[in-house]
Design a protein around this nucleic acid. Sequence first.
DNA 1: CGCATTGATACTGCACGGGTATAAGACGTG
DNA 2: CACGTCTTATACCCGTGCAGTATCAATGCG
Lengths: 273, 273
Amino acid sequence: MRYFVAVAEELHFGRAAQRLTIAQPPLSRAIQQLERRLGVVLLHRTTRAITLTEAGSVLLREARLALDAVEAAERRTRRAAPDQPGMVLATKAGASRELLSRLLDAYAASPSAVDVEVVLCGPGESEALLRNGSADVALLQRPHDTTAGLDTEDLRTENQVLVLPEGHALADRPHVSMAEVDALPLPLPRWPRRDGTYPDGPGPKVRDLIQLTQLITLGRACALVPESLRAQLDGDHAIVAVADAPAVTTVIAWPAHSRSKAVAELVRTALEL
Amino acid sequence: MRYFVAVAEELHFGRAAQRLTIAQPPLSRAIQQLERRLGVVLLHRTTRAITLTEAGSVLLREARLALDAVEAAERRTRRAAPDQPGMVLATKAGASRELLSRLLDAYAASPSAVDVEVVLCGPGESEALLRNGSADVALLQRPHDTTAGLDTEDLRTENQVLVLPEGHALADRPHVSMAEVDALPLPLPRWPRRDGTYPDGPGPKVRDLIQLTQLITLGRACALVPESLRAQLDGDHAIVAVADAPAVTTVIAWPAHSRSKAVAELVRTALEL
DNA sequence: CGCATTGATACTGCACGGGTATAAGACGTG
DNA sequence: CACGTCTTATACCCGTGCAGTATCAATGCG
């Protein structure tokens, strides 16, 4: 399945083999065997290009889930070793900062509290860490993160605001609409995907908040961020409410079958904030 | 992981090896290798008994999920083959009969409807079929089935009623309490578990509704069932409302990451009933 | 009409999973 | 207390199967 996912993602046997650090012929054979075993054609291949069949797309999605589940099983088992490593919480760097610190303070006051290791990660990454067992619990933000298959509790819903360079034409408006934002000559920045690549399109590439604020200050970008992020922006920007931007809900999420007492206690604490 | 699950369930290398149709020594070594690879002790073994460590219990749960995911990946891929087999719906035999038939009728009227194969199964089994990819969608009943990790929509909530032999002392009461039910000399029947074994305790073993109704008629058992099941009981019983029995919610459930148009359409139909 | 690119095939070697035989440790029993 | 039984671990061997190298076949491009 690892092999198939590599081929399906690369759409190229040679590159996939390289990624898997094996030679190309065994990879071809492995995929053939998989197709024979399943009795299904997964790939349409010509000597020049590869495309996924319907069944291939299904397997790509399902295999990713299955591989995640296997990885998660190993990681969670390692973490359950007697040399107690506490609990790992993943969250997007910068997001929900005061919410997180209030949560950690409140949880630490609980008599049964264990050590909480906080892992700060890039956009979308915290969800992956939770799914593959690297984290026990995470703060996610809908709709950015997808919570299907996870258990969640909503913590807070907030509106998004537009961050502009100081003195921008729109800076004095009480509020703007999404249509106006889309029409701006200032591009929204591009964030890296989980694999480190960037989506195509205009807009500068950014990796963290520092880069973002700097770009905005320089007048090279604007940004749509949750209201609570204002506290972490330095003063050189203008903030304008966006009336019809989708609201962002911060949720606390954990694997659906978690039996951890510590996670349950942390969630309980979060709901009481 | 299959090996570990077998050992953890049997708590006995010999029996586990038999179940896996391999010899015992390779099984011992496989578990040792797994423990070395994970760097975690999974089992405390003496020459007389085996017990799971904390990490072992975690792996047992996680490995089951992972194996289910792998199995599901294979099954769903096979089902996505071009020779379209339609959609498979799983439900507990006997439960929600008129709800199901209304649903199927309404769905069949939809212009984009595909064939629906209905799989009737024992208690708890439909949930398993859904999780391991044998079914695309299922009607489940909370709290009997656990829906963690599945996407669901509630269809109907109903109270449970007590079914008694005709002429029983409680038969004329307008309603009874759970405490009275528990205190009855008549035992509740035992249903088989997923693996076909029965839980310990009093009460006759039953496999289906026919057996159940017959036992009740014979005065050997009583039963707590959702209200809607009355329609399927023949006339020789008394029915009494149970004031404080937990309500049963029938839900339509599907795998959290399903992308099937047919399933989405069926769910939409169900919500409009 | 070559040439480059890419997936498939042929063949070889070796590592790993599985089998049998047996040891070692623990408990019950005469 | 020794012996038999039960259960897991070790020693050793063997065959399958996966990965590697070399090469072929087919397709697109200049």
